[in-house]
Design a protein around this nucleic acid. Structure first.
Lengths: 151, 151
DNA sequence: ATAAAAACAGGAATCACTACTATTGTTGTG
DNA sequence: CACAACAATAGTAGTGATTCCTGTTTTTAT
């Protein structure tokens, strides 16, 4: 029930998220989508992110640092929170779902799932300062609006 | 530097936490400690919880539900968040620190640690309703003040 | 006893996020 | 196409956990 209706704001949000490899916060999404849809409101961003996550089209991450992040990639994978730059990167690693069985082994309740994430230093921050940062995938972690050009 | 000075408020907080098997929130701690130290302020509770956690005397848990919880047991162990009652219970389970190696295997940064918790249904909530709830460890999950007796 | 500074109480402020309301946009149906 | 039903929006107010600030009180070393 409550059939979903189309909305450009939702399209913009999803489109933006799909194009990102990082895991932006609602605020970053808001500031960026606002370049295409200048009148969009923060509440709309939150409402749609929540709705998209509920429908399984995106996923919502909570890495314990007080902000939720959003990921256009809903396939199961793990994340690492970089303690230096605050960024979040995907981690390619073998399956660890066996932790569920381990958790259930001596437990008298029911274990439905688990949340795991890692912390440490991302590849970029691990390299010696001033190394080959010139090339590379330099997407500033939390791209804010380039204050000069847009609005 | 900044030598720590003794304080009864901090003592009360730690003492209260050590006596609990559940994982109370700052607010629950505040409401309970206030029975012993009626003039304690919430800010003091937070400041001391943060300080004790920083010094490794207690640990701070974030289970992604918007509230931090505190645990007097700092030995490494895992937690389960009950989706029915909202409570948090300890999980006795074999070591899973091997996930760290798995995470590090194909990663070009540095993996320092991981956070893992489980969700599902706790033992009490799993049992058929109205069963043997009469006996048992019935500590109400978020013990508020028993409004009648105290203040 | 005393002074330096850690800690406190109380309240204001912050921050991410949610809720509310009047208005606008979408969509199925005749 | 017209139009009613209602999903979605913008804008703004509200919430709840946590932190910060300030003048006062405790602790503690001397």
């Amino acid at each position: 029930m409550a059939a979903r209706k189309h909305s450009r704001q939702r399209d913009s949000i999803k489109e933006f998220l799909m194009a990102r490899q990082d895991h932006p916060t609602a605020d970053v999404i808001y500031r960026n989508v606002r370049q295409r849809s200048p009148s969009i409101s923060l509440g709309t961003v939150y409402r749609n992110l929540t709705l998209l996550a509920k429908d399984g089209e995106i996923s919502r991450l909570n890495l314990g640092d007080g902000v939720d992040r959003f990921d256009g990639d809903t396939s199961p994978h793990y994340h690492l929170l970089c303690e230096k730059c605050g960024g979040v990167v995907d981690l390619e690693m073998e399956d660890i779902s066996s932790v569920l069985e381990k958790a259930a082994a001596h437990f008298d309740g029911h274990v439905a799932g688990h949340v795991t994430y890692f912390y440490g230093t991302c590849g970029r921050c691990t390299k010696p300062a001033g190394a080959d940062l010139s090339a590379g995938t330099a997407l500033p972690e939390d791209t804010a609006l380039p204050e000069g050009s847009g609005a």
